[in-house]
């Protein structure tokens, strides 16, 4: 049990260190200007001493400020990051919870109606939606909303972050993937329990099919579902990125993209200063979040083989 917690923490430290080293790479770029200050080209010049100086500067800065310090406007950075991170959690956590509850329910129903016509609406839609890129689903939903709006039937705000509409719509976009993912995992977990003796015993005692499914089979399968929770969190975080950037929901993923903005825009002579400190703050929070998910799924996984040996 201890190793299940300790090992992920060690890997997290290694992972975070590597990301830190990449983010703190020096940005010494020599720009060549064309006529009238236009862009003629740029040559990147890596110097280890500068990299080392960046690293030293970062740590002395952290120690000196006793935290992430203040931004240009004089507001504490850690406070800002905390606010937008909470804003992201407001859509992320409900999406994950919906994923678990509705996903498991859908998985059980898919399993219950796995034969006959139920297959088409059950299993097939699950597999189909999993294959469609999330952005396609989002666009279809948005176009539907826009169409209904043009008919004057609904009034939903699609872009932004400050209204309830935005939060609800983003939860909807984000929860599609987890629901489908968890329902597939649930389906497979139930299928694995299918032939077990205890299931036959329960059925032979005349217990209702749904009750066998929910109270007996699901109880044994639930750990397997939790074991996959880290994969789900990872994918949903990727989707969070797309959803936030696309709908201008100003959460942590949106601002992290903002701080990384130098990949697509720059000014001659100066790279758009990727606000390195903020970036490190976001990377830290996101990796810690994944660490928690990894620990949870690791603990769940540690129970699964024990059960296997018992049989």
């Amino acid at each position: 049990m201890i190793t299940r917690i300790l090992f992920p923490v060690l890997v997290w430290m290694l992972s975070f260190t590597i990301l830190l080293l990449i983010i703190l790479l020096p940005t010494d770029t020599v720009f060549t200007e064309g006529r009238g200050g236009s862009f003629g080209g740029a040559v990147y010049d890596y110097q280890f001493t500068n990299h080392w100086a960046n690293i030293k500067f970062f740590f002395s800065y952290i120690i000196e400020q006793g935290g992430l310090g203040l931004d240009q406007m004089g507001n504490p950075i850690s406070e800002q990051i905390g606010t937008v991170f909470l804003r992201s959690l407001k859509i992320f956590l409900p999406a994950i919870l919906i994923g678990f509850f509705i996903g498991i329910a859908k998985g059980v129903i898919d399993y219950r109606f796995r034969k006959g016509k139920g297959r088409v609406i059950g299993q097939f839609t699950t597999a189909g939606i999993l294959a469609v890129p999330d952005i396609a689903v989002i666009i279809v939903i948005q176009l539907a909303v826009l169409y209904l709006q043009s008919k004057g039937l609904v009034d939903i705000n699609l872009f932004g972050h400050d209204q309830l509409d935005n939060v609800l719509m983003n939860i909807l976009y984000l929860s599609i993937y987890p629901v489908m993912f968890i329902s597939t995992i649930t389906f497979n977990a139930l299928q694995a329990e299918q032939g077990e003796d205890y299931v036959r015993t329960a059925r032979s005692k005349g217990i209702a099919e749904m009750k066998v499914l929910y109270t007996h089979m699901l109880k044994n399968g639930i750990l397997k579902i939790f074991a996959y929770s880290n994969t789900m969190v990872l994918y949903t975080l990727s989707n969070l990125f797309i959803v936030e950037v696309f709908t201008e929901y100003r959460g942590a993923a949106f601002y992290m993209y903002d701080t990384l903005g130098s990949a697509t825009t720059f000014y001659v002579g100066a790279l758009l200063s990727a606000d390195v400190i903020k970036q490190i703050g976001y990377v830290f929070l996101f990796t810690v979040f994944i660490l928690v998910a990894n620990v949870v799924s690791g603990i769940a996984r540690s129970f699964v083989p024990v059960q296997g040996e018992k049989l």
Partner: peptide
């Protein structure tokens, strides 16, 4: 293990 700590899209962007 290291790459499983960041969604692919984050790493690519960084």
């Amino acid at each position: 293990a290291v790459f499983s700590f960041m969604p692919t899209i984050f790493i690519i962007l960084i």
